[in-house]
Design a protein around this nucleic acid. Structure first.
Lengths: 141, 141
DNA sequence: ATTCTTGCAAACGGTTTGCACATAC
DNA sequence: GTATGTGCAAACCGTTTGCAAGAAT
């Protein structure tokens, strides 16, 4: 079971202070070797092929543990609950990572061109910029 | 109950083809007059002061109806489930609004300065750019 | 009169938690 | 031997849905 290919992953986990288990190796590998930003469920399905007994709960717990260690992050989520506004033209925000307040701003890119990778093949409809930091109230503390 | 101040909101709803009720007026007003990007629960609490019988379900249904009519949108949510990745340096994404695929990209702002409003008072830690559109597979259809 | 909306309660689905057993150190 | 992780199931919580009564047109 201690295949050669797991070794780097094992070092990564160890060096991050994370206790190593076969489940965690498999979860981290599944995530790290994918470019698709999978969900917990997708990781679970992938890992299950080699670890039929693994539970989805373990995947969630491991991902959270990885997150605490700075190895893994969620993509594109500001707050945990849906939040709404009425201004169709306002897609750019200052977001306070402490109190989760959100402030509208004008497009901070202004007239500058976005530089995108060649050959991405996307039909671009627009862009949203989220600037993360501490709002005035939370800076002071 | 037909106060003068509701009149503009009534027109807005009517012109968007939305059937007008007092509940919807109150919900739309609560949202439109706030700069805080409230959650459904927060809107519910606010509206409840004037409409003690209103239900949270009505708030959700109304917000969805407003969304269909283009009057309201959720802020900062890509997909509905959490998705993960391992690259701490990758905060910029191409997001397909059809198939919900996500592709990492380098910072599309490059060396350009972000132009922020004066006096925002935020301590800025970083920025995330999400570019919305159709991925190559979904463009073709 | 018909269609749409409301309020209530139940259902749903992604995520978290509690606990007994197993594994890592 | 102690601390931590695993698997399972139940709980949680934001959101959605079904339905009978009520309001809008």
């Amino acid at each position: 079971m201690e295949g050669r290919r797991e070794v780097d992953y094992m070092s990564v986990l160890k060096e991050s202070g994370i206790q190593v288990t076969y489940q965690r190796l498999a979860i981290y590998k599944a995530l790290h070797s994918s470019t698709k930003h999978p969900s917990a469920e997708e990781i679970y399905q992938k890992v299950r092929k080699n670890f039929p007994m693994i539970s989805l709960g373990t995947v969630y717990k491991s991902l959270e543990r990885f997150g605490e260690a700075g190895l893994v992050q969620k993509v594109g989520t500001m707050a945990d609950v849906s939040r709404y506004h009425t201004r169709a033209d306002s897609h750019h925000h200052l977001f306070c990572i402490k109190c989760q307040s959100i402030q509208d701003i004008a497009d901070p890119i202004g007239g500058n061109e976005l530089s995108l990778p060649d050959g991405h093949g996307f039909e671009i409809l627009g862009h949203d910029v989220i600037i993360r930091g501490y709002c005035p109230q939370c800076v002071e503390k």
